[in-house]
């Protein structure tokens, strides 16, 4: 087991380096002169050569490429870079925005797991019934609605419509979370009332596609598990239906589902950008987007690396737990 973990961490480091290099090349080495871009604020104003030269010097853009690569690399790993455009330290950004992203992601996962698994199991148990058809249909549609459309739609209903038509207090939600206040969270993941109101909509929207996938996946694995041979053996042993259902069907069916949810965590962190934009949730995603638009390299690199690291660790955690869940799996290099 230990060998396995070490190997995977090593592999992860290589992947991160590779990703870093790729991003560096794409954002930096290929496109046109970054100094001009920055000096002219991406072409929105003309910059005199003097200004461009100043920018170059300040940002160290006049140094040879490999030196710049190394600088960026060390900066990123130590989180000591500064934004090209605002000169805000990267470490501050991470400190502020990472918790916000994590909170959103955790809540989205809770929704995804509970509603997704719940409806999937329901669907499978009552296959072919009305409940099944409705749930499947809802799942399919949820997978097709773009996150940003869904986001605005919800805002439209609960934020605008509700106010205009004077819905009861609890049904009205603020449209935009300008009031995100990290100090009002307990134990990192428990929000107080107002914060919860701000959180719930983006969490639902972010979770929508994943919930749909989990629901359908659960349904499929449940249906498969229900017809497995060992279920027949369990019944033949005289176990009650409830026990068979829980210990022999559900337990086996959930293995792929839990795996998916684990991997999804990493994906959600990276994907949250759209949701964050819609609801103006101050997370990593939206910051990366703006920075990328401005070719603000240090920010892009540092934040991307953070996200990739989380994604890689989440995958590793999933693989380890998968071995615990399904004894048939032998981890490469273990045992």
């Amino acid at each position: 087991m230990a060998v396995f973990i070490v190997r995977r961490l090593f592999s992860l480091v290589i992947t991160l380096l590779g990703g870093f290099a790729l991003l560096f090349i794409l954002f930096f080495a290929l496109p046109g002169d970054p100094a001009t871009k920055i000096a002219s604020n991406n072409g929105s104003k003309n910059a005199s050569p003097q200004v461009v030269a100043n920018v170059e010097k300040r940002l160290g853009l006049d140094k040879p490429i490999y030196e710049q690569f190394w600088n960026r690399l060390t900066d990123t790993v130590t989180l000591s870079g500064e934004s090209y455009t605002t000169r805000e330290p990267v470490s501050d950004m991470v400190k502020q925005r990472l918790p916000a992203s994590l909170r959103l992601a955790i809540f989205a996962m809770l929704i995804e797991a509970s509603i997704g698994i719940g409806s999937g199991v329901l669907s499978a148990r009552r296959r072919g019934s009305i409940a099944d058809t409705i749930t499947t249909f809802a799942a399919v549609i949820a997978g097709a609605i773009p996150v940003f459309v869904l986001g605005y739609l919800i805002t439209l209903v609960t934020g605008v419509y509700a106010f205009e038509h004077h819905w009861p207090e609890w049904a009205r939600f603020p449209a935009i979370s300008n009031n995100y206040d990290p100090s009002q969270w307990y134990l990192f993941i428990i929000p107080n009332g107002t914060q919860f109101e701000l959180l719930i909509q983006p969490a639902i929207v972010l979770a929508s596609v994943s919930t749909a996938i989990v629901a359908r996946l659960t349904r499929t694995t449940m249906l498969e598990a229900q017809t497995a041979d060992h279920v027949r053996t369990a019944r033949a042993k005289g176990l009650s239906d409830k026990v068979v259902s829980r210990k022999h069907v559900l337990r086996n069916a959930l293995i792929p589902v839990v795996t998916f949810i684990g991997i999804d965590f990493g994906t959600i962190i990276g994907f949250a950008i759209l949701t964050e934009t819609v609801f103006q949730w101050p997370g990593l995603g939206s910051k990366v987007a703006t920075a990328a638009g401005q070719s603000d390299l240090p920010v892009v690199l540092a934040l991307s690396m953070v996200v990739m690291l989380i994604y890689g660790l989440a995958n590793l955690a999933v693989d380890i737990s998968y071995a615990k869940l399904d004894p048939r799996i032998r981890l490469a290099g273990a045992k």
Partner: peptide, 12 residues
Amino acid sequence: FQDPLSALNPVY
């Protein structure tokens, strides 16, 4: 049953 590999639950 016929095939003990599939007749027994692999996770227990």
